[in-house]
C-alpha cells in the first residue's frame, strides 16, 4: 500500500521508498526512511495532496511523491 491510499488519522510505518532521482533522495533527506512511523493527518479539500507528520514536523506531499512511499499500518487497529 502506498501513502496515497492510507486512511486519515492513522499511524503507518514506512516499508520502503521507491522511485529514483531527486524526488526519491529528497524524501530520504526529509526523514522518510524505512522503519520510521508517520501519522497521516488528512487530505487536501481538492484531493491529491496528503498531510503527514513524522519526526516532529508536518509535511504536505503530492500524490507523485506520496505514491513512492510504501507503508504498512502501525497503530494496531
Amino acid at each position: 500500500m502506498t501513502l496515497m491510499h492510507a486512511e486519515s488519522d492513522r499511524i503507518y510505518r514506512i516499508v520502503s521508498v521507491s522511485g529514483d532521482g531527486d524526488r526519491h533522495r529528497r524524501l530520504l533527506d526529509m526523514g522518510f526512511t524505512p522503519g520510521s512511523e508517520i501519522y497521516v493527518a488528512g487530505y487536501a479539500p481538492f484531493g491529491g495532496t496528503v498531510l503527514v507528520s513524522l519526526r516532529g514536523f508536518s509535511v504536505a506531499l503530492r500524490e507523485n511523491a506520496a505514491d513512492l512511499i510504501n507503508v504498512e499500518c502501525a497503530d494496531g487497529l
Partner: peptide, 21 residues
Amino acid sequence: DLKRRGFSGADRIFLNKYLAL
C-alpha cells in the same frame, strides 16, 4: 502523542476537509 510526532491539533479545524476553504 500526535504533538510529539509533529501534528498540531489546530490543523484538525483549519485543514478540515469541509471547513478549510
